[in-house]
């Protein structure tokens, strides 16, 4: 897959831009967290498209965002278990 550029993204309709970004994000996140990849990708897709494009070029910032999302997910799961 060739890298997703800002102009490619801008050419796509707004509704499809998030899907395009998600298609690129999903495999990267799946490599880190196979079971939570769909949910984490959904959470990261709420970030601005311009920042998401930047994250493709800097794995460290992508990983830190993924870990932040995982921390929130796990805290939420613990909270749900304790309330049951």
């Amino acid at each position: 897959q060739e890298p997703l550029t800002a102009s490619m993204l801008a050419a796509a309709p707004l509704k499809e831009q998030k899907q395009l970004l998600g298609e690129r994000l999903y495999p990267l996140i799946q490599a880190l967290h196979p079971t939570l990849a769909g949910k984490i990708t959904g959470m990261l897709l709420e970030i601005d498209n311009s920042e998401l494009l930047h994250m493709f070029e800097s794995p460290e910032s992508l990983h830190s965002k993924v870990e932040e999302a995982v921390a929130v997910l796990q805290a939420h799961q613990v909270k749900e278990l304790t309330t049951k």
């Binding site: 899907q19 999903y26 959470m43 920042e51 929130v72």
Partner: peptide, 19 residues
Amino acid sequence: KPFVPNINAAEFIPGFLQK
């Protein structure tokens, strides 16, 4: 803008899983 992970964000479903 600080990233605040939203626990209620819709799960992303990649194209190959949608088919």
